[in-house]
């Protein structure tokens, strides 16, 4: 995929990302949010510690995709999200994130992009599904793809 992210349209996808959550990575995120709840650190009932939701959230924006390309001088910002946690994720497991763009539109000088992110564990279970809206912004006027006008 050689398009910049803001040029993608509804129906396009970003390339999936696979990542493994080590205890060290999980604990790095626990430090980030000062949340040392034992369920994220200790084994319970023979199961590994849980992956902290903030780590899964962090991996779900489109910017994590290997194919995400942002145009020079452009920034992107989160606007809103709706998330549902469907299964616990466990430390040591490998997860896959997939992204699908569902809508794009210009508003107040920015390009909005709405997309769905799903994270599955190694058993194929969806652990987190997010519907996100993010914006692209720039110091210079953005030329949107297609017929959209800012």
């Amino acid at each position: 995929m050689d398009k910049y992210a803001h040029e993608l349209q509804a129906g396009d996808s970003y390339e999936p990302l696979r990542f493994t959550v080590t205890p060290e990575l999980n604990q790095q995120f626990l430090y980030a949010v000062e949340d040392f709840n034992p369920i994220f650190i200790e084994e319970r009932d023979g199961s590994p510690p849980l992956v902290h939701p903030v780590l899964l959230m962090h991996m779900s924006p489109r910017t994590r995709s290997p194919s995400y390309r942002q145009a020079p001088g452009m920034g992107s910002a989160f606007a809103s999200d709706s998330s549902i946690y469907l299964a616990p994720g466990y430390v040591g497991d490998t997860f896959e994130v997939r992204w699908r763009i569902v809508n794009t539109y210009p508003k107040r000088g920015k390009i909005y992009q709405e997309y769905v992110a799903e994270i599955r564990d190694s058993h194929g279970r969806i652990v987190l599904r997010r519907e996100l809206a993010s914006t692209f912004f720039s110091q210079v006027k953005i030329k949107p793809a297609g017929d959209a006008q800012l």
Binding site: A32, M57, F78
Partner: peptide
């Protein structure tokens, strides 16, 4: 990052 304090919020929910 907004994820940082959304993490605080979800931590409270958990």
């Amino acid at each position: 990052s907004g994820t940082q304090w959304e993490g605080h919020l979800v931590g409270l929910l958990v």
